[in-house]
Structures are given as structure tokens and as C-alpha cells.
Design a protein around this nucleic acid. Structure first.
Lengths: 115, 115
DNA sequence: CCAAGTTATTACGATTATCATAATCGGATA
DNA sequence: TATCCGATTATGATAATCGTAATAACTTGG
């Protein structure tokens, strides 16, 4: 298959992409950790709970997502993360960056100069 | 300005984008650490040497980039990183991912189903 | 009603990446 | 030769990620 270290690539770069996907999905419907794990597996990537859950928790801490749980659901009830105003701002910026990235590295357009 | 923690955003997500830019640039002409720092500054982002140089060194370790230096240039001669075959494979995969990301979060296309 | 699976999250210790800042090196400038 | 500039290196602290195991609550079958 690939001749390179996929684990390193996931950690250094792809995980960042997936975080953008998470924010995007969260802006349409609530996201839960387990869904994210399965979704990535479906795409052929394997990411451990020890990565996913802390990641969502950090996004909540930072105010990018808000978390709701069934209060009667017990200690490990499923957590639904949905978008906040701040998260939306982050996502807006990320969309711009994702577009720049696409234009430059996929389409091969030159960077626009800041004059 | 922004109401969110830009430092966290840079660290968790944007830095990954910039790594893709680095690989892309390296596939066209050699890249050096100082250039990268200035380029990011030009775009309004501030990243420290303690991030950039280890990052390039890791890419070399992993065989994604190869490094050439003027052998008579002394201990801190400028290092030029250029693309390797393995790095090109990494970049190819990243281009696909960047395109998926763009289609989904910028254009709002639905994911393609794996049936 | 109990045992066994299923769906989820949490805990944890080890490893790796990132950060800010200071130090260093060598060439150019004056 | 003293100073500045372009670059990289060193370092110690902090933060993110990893794999694995533990836990909790529901569901299902006998």
C-alpha cells in the first residue's frame, strides 16, 4: 500500500482536517464521539477514543461547541455536541483557509499577493 | 477582533494546513525554515522557530523531504528542503483530502456514500 | 431475572508535538 | 573589529495524541 508512515500523517495533518469536518457537521446537527469514530472508520481511518473524546471536550472548553446530555442518563450517557456562536466564527475562518488550501495545492493557483 | 482563542486554533488545526502548503511548495522549489516563518507572518500568523524547525526536521526524518546544505556553510548554514518520492505520495493523499474537505465544508456537497 | 452483548464515555500512563525564548553561528556592513 | 542580519539550534515547559483497559447503562434472549 502506502510507503509512508500513515500514523504520523494522521497525527500531524489529517486529524486537523477531521476537526474541521466535526465543526461543519456540528453546525448542521449535533455530533457525538462514537459517530465520529465510526465515520472515520468507514473512511478507512482508525482513531482511538483517547484522541476523539478529549478533542471534543477541548472544543467545548474553548466554547466552540456546547454539550448536552440526558440528565437522567447516568455517568456515561451519550453527549451531543452542537455549534456555538464562537464555534461558528472558528468554522468561518477555517472555511476560508480550506478554500485557500484547495485553490493553491489542488487547483495550483498562485497565492494572491498582499500589496 | 476574533472572539476565540487563535493560539489554540493555530495549534490544533491551522498548523496542519500549513504543513500541506509546505509540502506543496517543496514540490515546486526548495523550502527553508526562515521563508516559512516570514510567509506565515505575511499572512498575519505568528509561529515560532521552535515549531517550524522541528517540523521540517520531522518531515525529513520521515522521508517526506530531503535536506541539502552548503557543506562549507558551517554549523548553522541554511537548509533547503525539497520533495522526495515518499513526500509526493503524502502530498497526493493530502490533495485528495483537501479536495474532500473543500467540497464538503465550503461547497456544502454531501459526502459520497461507500456502498 | 440474569448473563451476555452493545453502545458509549472515561481513565490513565506513555509518547510526541508545540511553544516561547535565548543562544549561537557566519556573513555582510560600516 | 564591532555590530547587525539571516538563519538555525537548544531547552524546558506545556499541551495533544495514542492505545488500552475500565466503566456504565441499555437491550436482548433464555
Amino acid at each position: 500500500m502506502n510507503s509512508f508512515d500513515m500514523k504520523a500523517l494522521q497525527r500531524e495533518i489529517l486529524l486537523g482536517f477531521w476537526k474541521v469536518h466535526v465543526l461543519h457537521h456540528a453546525s448542521e446537527r449535533p455530533v457525538i464521539g462514537q459517530w465520529m469514530i465510526q465515520e472515520l472508520r468507514r473512511h478507512g481511518y482508525d482513531v482511538s477514543p483517547g484522541t476523539i473524546y478529549p478533542l471534543l471536550a477541548r472544543m467545548e472548553e474553548r466554547g466552540w461547541l456546547k454539550c448536552t446530555t440526558d440528565p437522567d442518563g447516568g455517568l456515561r450517557a451519550r453527549k451531543e455536541y452542537s455549534m456555538t456562536r464562537k464555534g461558528q466564527e472558528v468554522l468561518d475562518l477555517l472555511r476560508k483557509q480550506a478554500e485557500e488550501l484547495y485553490r493553491e495545492v489542488v487547483l495550483g493557483e498562485d497565492e494572491k499577493e498582499t500589496e
